[in-house]
Amino acid sequence: MSATEQPFSIYQFFSQLKLHHFSMVAQGLISQDILSLIALSLKRRPDNQVLARRLFALVVELSQNIFHYSAIKEFSVKDQCEIGVGIVAIGESDTHYLVASGNVANAENASYIARQCDYINTLDSEELKQYYREQRRQPVREGSVGGSIGLIEIARKSGNPIHYEIIPMEDGNVFLIFVAKVRKSVSYDD
């Protein structure tokens, strides 16, 4: 630690999260177990169950992006495989819930995902539905272990454009951020 650097303060960390209305943050190995804990905590919320499931779907798909595409991976003894390292957070504004994810990614992978996002963000809900069904019939993208329909699912469940940000890092990798928003007042006719 350099002399000018502030020591890490749990209190400041807590205050920051509170200020920005983040209720849940997981950082580190984003494993299946972490996901099931988040699922449990979302189910405990008394509000709308459909909304809770949509939020959970966003957490799952964003986490599984980290799981597979993070440039930093660690071996999990329990899962007996390598798992991506990243951060997942659930927050809220007055009108929306937010699910955000961040991880270090290979620059090329990140720009591929960004192009996908740009395209998906141009589609309306009916077009998203068609694109989802089309892509589900396609074999998965080379080098991809998960469903490449994850991003489409994120756009569908959130009902909003997917926000992303790519921050270049010194080592040539990038830090890839996704934010998916869901309106708090979900209409059942949606």
């Binding site: 959970f56 799952v60 589900r136 469903g147």
Partner: peptide, 13 residues
């Protein structure tokens, strides 16, 4: 089912 991810969705298909 009460929930399944996109990866499962392919398996069901």
């Amino acid at each position: 089912m009460s929930y399944y991810n996109t990866s499962t969705s392919r398996r069901f298909l």
